[in-house]
């Protein structure tokens, strides 16, 4: 079979199908657009939530290891290097006693109390510390347990400091957001698939006599299928383009400072749009394949 006239025929029939069944085509276009809009919005919200949670996670992933007063600067640096070489540690920085006092003065307003202690001969009570930024929130507890056994640490029950309560909560939220987003996208995708399948099945029913004749005169199953697949593909892609356009419009309207609404970046918006177009194309083609299957059964 010559591919060029065959392609021309398939495109012509697919477009004819859409025009002839424009009522059904419009209804499926509208519904698939709405479902893809829902899917795109869900992905945007999940990504925005994920971004917020990542910020929370990076803040909760800081581990402050307090040093004993008696250890030398060399020993402290040695421990810092050892910890920095751990695979789960992103960065490590040493904070001496003076820096700790300055930090406490500026952030906690303890400048006056520290000055009194120092002038009365009590010295600076704040310990030096190594501040660890961990790559993953899940590694905080493990690193904490590892350094707790070192005899270089500040004596007493508060050798290390990290946000113990936040970690499991943040982990829980991240998991819930990812799972919820995935379920939402899957449900919306399934709805779009069913709608396209029904649309193509209706189109196949309207064209049942044409399909019957095609089969009787010796057209192959694939030749019967292709116009329907193309029809689904066109509807899916147009729906995705409409949904992307609406999402981008809303994002720009409610965005600020170089990013779209919900803090979604332009790059992410483009990725979501491309994902929707790809999703629309796959949903359209696959829905058509399922929709036409019954008509080819005999």
């Amino acid at each position: 079979m010559n591919p060029v006239p065959a392609l021309r025929f398939v495109v012509r029939v697919a477009l004819q199908n859409i025009v002839r069944n424009r009522g059904i085509a419009f209804a499926s276009l509208l519904t698939v657009t709405l479902t893809l809009l829902g899917a795109g919005a869900a992905v945007g919200v999940v990504f925005a939530l994920d971004k917020v949670l990542q910020q929370e996670e990076s803040q909760a992933s800081v581990l402050k290891v307090f040093m004993a007063d008696h250890i030398s600067f060399a020993s402290a640096l040695n421990l810092e290097h050892t910890l920095a070489s751990e695979p789960s540690v992103q960065s490590a920085s040493f904070e001496n006693k003076d820096q700790a006092a300055a930090q406490a003065s500026s952030t906690l307003g303890l400048g006056g109390a520290l000055h009194i202690l120092e002038t009365s001969g009590g010295g600076n009570p704040l310990p030096a510390s190594i501040n660890l930024h961990l790559k993953n929130i899940a590694a905080v507890t493990a690193i904490n347990n590892q350094v707790s056994t070192s005899d270089l640490l500040f004596p007493g029950p508060h050798q290390t400091d990290y946000n113990k309560d936040v970690i499991p909560r943040v982990e829980h939220y991240i998991l819930a957001a990812q799972l919820g987003g995935a379920i939402l996208v899957a449900v919306v995708g399934a709805v779009a698939l069913v709608i396209i399948t029904i649309s193509v099945r209706t189109a196949a029913f309207v064209r049942r006599q044409e399909i019957e004749i095609m089969k009787l005169v010796g057209a192959t199953d694939w030749f019967v299928r292709w116009p329907f697949i193309l029809e689904g593909l066109i509807l899916g892609v147009i729906s995705a383009l409409l949904a992307s356009g609406v999402l981008l419009g809303v994002g720009v309207a409610f965005g600020s400072g170089g990013s779209l609404a919900l803090g979604v970046g332009v790059q992410l918006a483009v990725l979501i749009s491309l994902g929707l177009i790809l999703g629309g194309a796959v949903l359209g083609s696959f829905g058509s394949l399922v929709g036409i299957r019954r008509s080819l059964a005999t």
């Binding site: 004749i213 005169v217 057209a219 019967v224």
Partner: peptide, 23 residues
């Protein structure tokens, strides 16, 4: 008969060729 009502006589006959051997 199983003819397609929206196609002319010539188009109905040509249909058998177009769907089996478009080239």
């Amino acid at each position: 008969f199983k003819l397609l009502p929206n196609l002319t006589v010539a188009q109905n006959v040509a249909f058998a060729i177009q769907v089996t051997d478009p080239g």
